[in-house]
């Protein structure tokens, strides 16, 4: 469950990085993103990514750091594919990802 949370945080972080760029944001939402929102998304993304790194390496630093690199690779690959072929699908993730993050965190704490 810890590793699922780490992956979800990593994926959320990279989703934020993608949406903070005007070209990708326009492809997903069909409108331009303003500079202020873009900055907020970027900060949130960095927080998620750092949280993912911490969660990955919490139990085993060496093994966790390798896992974290793998999560980053898979996240970028998935996002690149979605943004190239079905960018509108990313819209639903805006609601799904936070929900998944909360559920996974609760399950982990239980």
């Amino acid at each position: 469950m810890t590793q699922l949370l780490a992956f979800l945080l990593c994926f959320t972080g990279f989703t934020g990085f993608a949406l903070a760029k005007s070209s990708h944001y326009r492809a997903v939402f069909a409108v331009r993103i303003d500079t202020k929102s873009s900055r907020h998304i970027l900060i949130m993304s960095w927080v998620c990514l750092l949280a993912s790194a911490v969660v990955s390496m919490w139990h085993q630093f060496g093994y966790g750091s390798v896992l974290f690199c793998g999560y980053m690779a898979v996240s970028v690959m998935c996002l690149a594919l979605v943004l190239s072929y079905q960018p509108a699908k990313l819209r639903s993730l805006i609601y799904v990802l936070p929900a998944l993050l909360i559920i996974t965190s609760i399950l982990m704490l239980i």
Binding site: V76, A80, L83, S84
Partner: peptide, 25 residues
């Protein structure tokens, strides 16, 4: 250009595939 993959654009598509596969891992 981290997430960029422009399909069906000839050499540009190959360049994107090259960059994407390099950067993601």
């Amino acid at each position: 250009d981290m997430f960029q993959f422009r399909k069906g654009k000839g050499v540009r598509t190959w360049l994107d595939a090259h960059n994407l596969s390099s950067v993601l891992a």
